[in-house]
Nucleic acid binder design. Sequence first.
DNA 1: TATGCTTGTTACTGACCGGTAACACCCCTG
DNA 2: CAGGGGTGTTACCGGTCAGTAACAAGCATA
Lengths: 202, 202
Amino acid sequence: MSTAAKSVPMSANLQVPPRERILAAASELFYRQGIRAVGVEAIAEAAGTNKMTLYRHFDSKDELVAEYLRCLATEAGGFWTDLEAAHPGDPRGQLRGWLTAMQAHVADADQRGCALANAAIELPEKGHPARRVIEEFKAAQRDRLVTLCGATGVAEPELLADELFLLLEGARVSAQSSGPQGPASRLVRMGEALIASHLAPA
Amino acid sequence: MSTAAKSVPMSANLQVPPRERILAAASELFYRQGIRAVGVEAIAEAAGTNKMTLYRHFDSKDELVAEYLRCLATEAGGFWTDLEAAHPGDPRGQLRGWLTAMQAHVADADQRGCALANAAIELPEKGHPARRVIEEFKAAQRDRLVTLCGATGVAEPELLADELFLLLEGARVSAQSSGPQGPASRLVRMGEALIASHLAPA
DNA sequence: TATGCTTGTTACTGACCGGTAACACCCCTG
DNA sequence: CAGGGGTGTTACCGGTCAGTAACAAGCATA
C-alpha cells in the first residue's frame, strides 16, 4: 500500500522491469486486437519503453508471441490448483466449479475467447514457435480434464472430458461470432446434463 | 470435357471472368494463410491478373473479404438443400447425415476450421463489413439446426441444437490447436449420444 | 572515482502494405 | 471502320512493417 503503485497497470508502472512491462503490454494488445494486427513499436510504446529495449529482451516478434502464450499457459495452470484448493477431495465439486468458472468467462463481454486457440488460427505456419506452445497447452488442458473426470468415477472419463472440452472450446469461439448471448450462454446447463448422463448410464 | 479446362483451378483459368478468379484466389489464400497475412497483390497475382483490376471489382480489401465470406455462406446454404434431398422427409436421417458430414469435414487434414469463425477471430473491429456477414451466417446456421432438431420430435430442440452447434464449433477450432486426431475425432459418437439422450429422456 | 551493465534516443534499412493515376491495349459491338 | 468498355502495365503515393546501428545517459557496484 505504501508504494501506491498497485492500481497502475503493469505495462505502465515504471517500477517493474521492462521485460515484464513489455509482456504485459503485448498480452493486452495481442489479445484485444490480434497478433498480426499489432506492431512491435506499438507494444514498446504501450510498455513505456522503446523498440530497442524490446529487441534486447526478445529475439523477434515471433519469440515475443511465443512467450506471451507461455505466460498465459502458466497462469491457466494456477487456475487448476486454485480449483483443487477450493474443493479439496471433491472431484465433482471441482468439475462443477470448473464449469461455472468457464461459463462466467464466456459470458464476460470483454473476453475474446481463448488466446491460445485464437493464436492457432492466426498463425497457421507449421514452424512458428508459438505452435508448439499452443499444442502442448491444449494437450495438458485436456489431460487435466480427463484426470478430473476420472476422479468423479464415471465409466468413460476420456469421452466425458472430450465432450466438455469441445463444448467449452465451441462456446468460447462461438461467443466471438454469435455473441455471448448466443448458444454459448447455456454452457453450464449443457455441461451438467452431460455429466449427469455419464454418472447415471442407461 | 471438350473444353479441357475442368481440372484447371478457377483462379488460374483465364476463361472465367476476372472477378470470379479473384474471388477464387482470395478464398484459397485467405483460408490457408489467414486474412491479414495475405496482401491484395498476392491475390491478384494468384488470380492471373493485377491489382488495378482487383480494385475495379472491389472497393477495398475489406470489401473483398466480406464478399469472400458471403460466397462461403451461400455455398453452405447449398449443403443444407443437398442434405434435405438426400434424406427427404427423414429429419433424423438428415441430422445423422449432417453429423457424419461434419465429422468428415473436421477430420480432413487440409481443412483449417470454419472460415467465418476464423475471420471473426482475425477481425475483431466492430465496424468491419465482414462482421455482419459472419453474425448473420452463424445465426442462420443455428436456426437451421434448431429447425431440424425440432422436426425430429425432441422435447427441447433449441437445447439439442445448441449442444450440437457448440460441439461442432469446438471440434473445428480444436482441430487447429489439438490436431484432427484429438478430441475432435469423436464428433459423431458424441453427437449421437446427445441426440439419443434427447430422444429418450429420463 | 571508475567499471560495466541496462536503458533511452534517434535514425536508418529494405521490404511490404493498401490504394491510385495514367496510358496502352484488345476485342466486341455498332 | 469507329467507338467504347474491360483489361493489362507501370509507376507511384504515404504509411507501416520487423529489425538494427551507433551513441548517450543512468545507475549500481567495486
